[in-house]
Amino acid sequence: SCPVAPASRSSQEVWESFSQCFTPAVKEVVEFAKSIPGFQTLSQHDQVMLLKSGTFQVLMVRFCSLFDPKERTVTFLNGQTYSLASLRALGMSSLLDAMFDFSEKLGSLGLEPDEMALFMAVVLVSADRSGIVEVGAVELLQENLIKALRSLITSRRPDDSTLFPKLLLRLPDLRTLNNQHSDKLLAFRID
């Protein structure tokens, strides 16, 4: 919801406001995770680990709706629209390009809001497993969520057998987005 780059502000100030905008967005993902049926039956350790490795990817899916691939613009929740060129000045160009591509592909699938929410649940529980203790429990939860997503999508589009596989193909895209960007972008934390 925050504006990005009014000319008068230094890039550090812009990064500060960007980082501060991020905090509520992350907290919303945490609340979303707790609402996923079965997520809170996982151990607290595994819940934290999944969130740490999956939150950036869930945010990328959520931010897709802000991106207009045709117009190459980003509209923040406060209604302010920025062109790709003006955002490039912030030095996030490779992430922005990747986001435009990703949102174009995901947008073209035309998911309903509830399908998108279920997809985000799948994204979260499909996140990197390296810190997970009870892998079996996470895999079972992932399997159930994927089954639910498949039946929701196929029940609405019985004659379209390509949509579900195309959707699952977005998971590796998200993992690449995450690996390329989440540990590069810098954030400022003000104590």
């Binding site: 500060e16 980082s19 991020f22 905090t23 992350v26 907290k27 945490v30 607290q44 819940q47 934290v48 969130l51 740490k52 939150t55 950036f56 960007h181 989440s182 540990d183 590069k184 972008l185 810098l186 954030a187 400022f188 934390r189 003000i190 104590d191």
Partner: peptide, 25 residues
């Protein structure tokens, strides 16, 4: 005075999540 800590976005996300779970224990 404001003290700034620069970190990766991944660390920033981890910090927020850890704080959230600690607060809700």
């Amino acid at each position: 005075p404001k003290t700034h800590r620069v970190m990766t976005l991944a660390d920033h996300i981890s910090h927020i999540i850890t704080q959230d779970f600690a607060r809700n224990q």
